[in-house]
Amino acid sequence: MDLENQKRVKDLTEEYGPENVVVLLGAAEGEASGIAAETVTAGDPTYAGPLTGVSLGLVVYHVCEDEVKEEFDPDVYDEQVSMMEMVLDIDEIAEEMQAIREEYTKY
């Protein structure tokens, strides 16, 4: 994850409290989703950014996962995202996200 974005995630989590923060991702692939999710839960796996060694344990979903999708206004989702379901490998992404959440999410 971009170093500046890591810094913002860290600062905002401190400001609002980790239990109140949810991260939503839009990554193009399973692996990239997994790395981003790991960054905001266990810490930056690339050892490059401000979240290196910082385990925030945040709740994190990919925008195309069913759990969050059913909370969106269906019209908004249809207009903004739905076409990408034909493009992205949603199953692979969901699998990666699920694994990271089970292991590292604390809230």
Partner: peptide, 9 residues
């Protein structure tokens, strides 16, 4: 146009 992929494309 916005940023929704379908609108962009």
């Amino acid at each position: 146009t916005g940023s929704a992929p379908q609108n962009v494309i």
